[in-house]
Amino acid sequence: MRRLLYLLPFLLFIGVGVAFYLGFERDPRDIPSALIDKPAPVFDLPPVPGQPATGGLSSAKLAGDVTLVNVFASWCIPCKAEHPVITRLSREQGVPVYGINYKDKPEDALTWLSRNGNPYAAIGADQDGRVSIDWGVYGVPESYLIDRQGRIRFKHVGPLTPQVVEEQILPMVKHLRQG
């Protein structure tokens, strides 16, 4: 019993050491969304000024189908990297993608869209970032998968990659459409 007491510091240290080792696996910046399985926030954003064709974005537009909401900005470099992935998702893989244009200058956003193409079914301009806060956005790009009932089911922080789309988003979309 007494010897066990003397062994205690060693055992505690083993625990801490293992924790440190496992700690390398984690990404301290990856913050889980507080909104998973909760209804998406109610919002109504105007279109990007000068691009009124699709008429802004509101909660109502998201209802009825499984959709992807993508938060982007022209000043965000990884957004450009994920843009082809999003375009493919919307045009070839049949997932409606809606955009929230985060704290962007309208003219920059328009230039960016005309240069890179516009895969979004509709875009809402979030000039002061307040709606994005309702979504729990903490960095761009971020993407949210919304089910038919308008609940957030999945969140991805950072640029979407073909791998994330193939392994996580498409299976989830399939599952949600069946359900």
């Binding site: 990404d27 910046r29 470099i77 903490y138 960095g139 761009v140 922080v157 950072g158």
Partner: peptide
């Protein structure tokens, strides 16, 4: 990779 991008662009 993701961490690097986030680190440089967001923070």
């Amino acid at each position: 990779m993701k961490r690097v991008l986030l680190a440089t662009l967001l923070a």
